[in-house]
């Protein structure tokens, strides 16, 4: 894929930029029920070792790096090495200690449980 957006020649520039991974925004689905917020993110090719999920002060950051193992010369290449990055705001009511993440078939599934205090409560009406 052509990542080059410069039409102008680059010879004139003093320092050539080193090659960096293109950043992509992974597509996500977000669901919620009374107990948790559930996030799915498509990140094909990202291994467990190259994936990090950080929650800090109400900001959730998902970062995955894909490096393809290839052999030979490419006849065509529609996808390549990439950095998947996406940030979200999460409510303070998330129980950060209980967050858990699964990675299967290139899909990240992130469970963000709500803290007990944030769950809806049924109030029982006492009879006299």
């Amino acid at each position: 894929m052509n990542e080059n957006t410069d039409i102008v020649k680059t010879e004139g520039r003093a320092v050539e930029q080193s090659r960096q991974l293109p950043t992509m925004t992974p597509v996500v689905d977000i669901y919620e029920n009374d107990n948790e917020i559930l996030l799915f993110a498509d990140m094909p090719g990202v291994t467990k070792e190259n994936l990090s999920v950080n929650i800090d002060n109400g900001k959730l950051s998902v970062l995955g790096i894909r490096r393809l193992e290839t052999a030979g010369s490419a006849s065509w290449e529609e996808f390549g090495d990439v950095e998947y990055l996406r940030n979200f705001s999460v409510p303070q009511t998330i129980d950060v200690a209980k967050v858990n993440a699964e990675l299967k078939d290139g899909v990240l599934k992130l469970h963000l449980p709500k803290s007990e205090a944030a769950k809806p409560k049924q109030i029982e009406i006492k009879a006299e």
């Binding site: 990140m43 290839t70 052999a71 030979g72 490419a74 006849s75 529609e78 996808f79 290139g106």
Partner: peptide, 20 residues
């Protein structure tokens, strides 16, 4: 999305199929 590589002895096709 797919990629095609020619490694001399063999061809290699890669495709992105998340969730499958």
């Amino acid at each position: 999305l797919t990629n095609l590589y020619d490694a001399g002895d063999s061809l290699e096709v890669k495709a992105e199929v998340p969730g499958m």
